[in-house]
Amino acid sequence: MEQSEQDTVTNFTVPEPATKPSAAPATGTPVFDVKGVSIYYGSFRAVTNVSLTIYENEITAFIGPSGCGKTTVLRTLNRMNDLVVGAHVEGEVEYRGEALYAKDVSATAVRRRIGMVFQKPNPFPKSIYDNVAYGPRINGIRNKGKLDEIVERSLRQAALWDEVKNRLKNSGLGLSGGQAQRLCIARTLAVEPDVVLMDEPASALDPIATAAIEDLMKDIKSEYTIVIVTHNMQQATRVSDRTAFYSVLVDSENDTRTGTLVEYAPTADLFGNPRDERTKAYVTGRMG
């Protein structure tokens, strides 16, 4: 992990929420364009002035200490925060050129294209089959043969098929933690979303289940755009193409704190050659 840090020594700017995206080769098509976004829960400003661009068929990781707003930003990308009473977003979030928070945009339609996997596995109290078929069914697919096909494809993509193919009628709640999380991933993939948002998908799992989920992320990357929030920096280096480092700004006068984006760069650059002091402190383990 130790890299040469000489060339960054000159860069001593900071406490400002400096959020210039790194001048990395922007190869892919932008999927999300987040511009100057602040997110409030009631009068509490949870996240301040975040700007970043997320590219197609890449894995983008959000890292940072607790309370830095990375999950909040993630939940803004498919309007999950609409469900929280009092939450609102300032600034612009564009999804493939469309304003995500425009008046006539339906959160339901957004979430059909932008799926989400949660920190705690949350299989429905239904059979394994019905869990995976849930999304296609609410989208109007009733044909048994087609559903069978989707269920098998999704479970295979989530690397769960071989473990559950003989007990598809059993309850989804009877699976182990790692299996349940892969079931939730299969459920998300079953609706063939454009983007998959993952909120610390492996934080409750053992290393083997974590490795399985990381492998699966790399496998499905060619078809999906993935954004993952993680507390685990090794995980970010292992799977992600780009990493955004968030941090907490503390205003000791008013005793308020807010999350902000500190640095966003290709993963190798962010970890090997951080431009911000706070990033450097965090990724080298001196803070957080």
């Binding site: 339901t108 059909r112 989400m116 949660f118 949350n122 999304g135 609410i138 998300t188």
Partner: peptide, 17 residues
């Protein structure tokens, strides 16, 4: 649990659904 509701919303379900 709210996580079940969120799981369903995240698949694009409406509130009634």
């Amino acid at each position: 649990p709210n996580s079940l509701r969120e799981g369903s919303y995240a698949l694009g379900a409406t509130k009634a659904r």
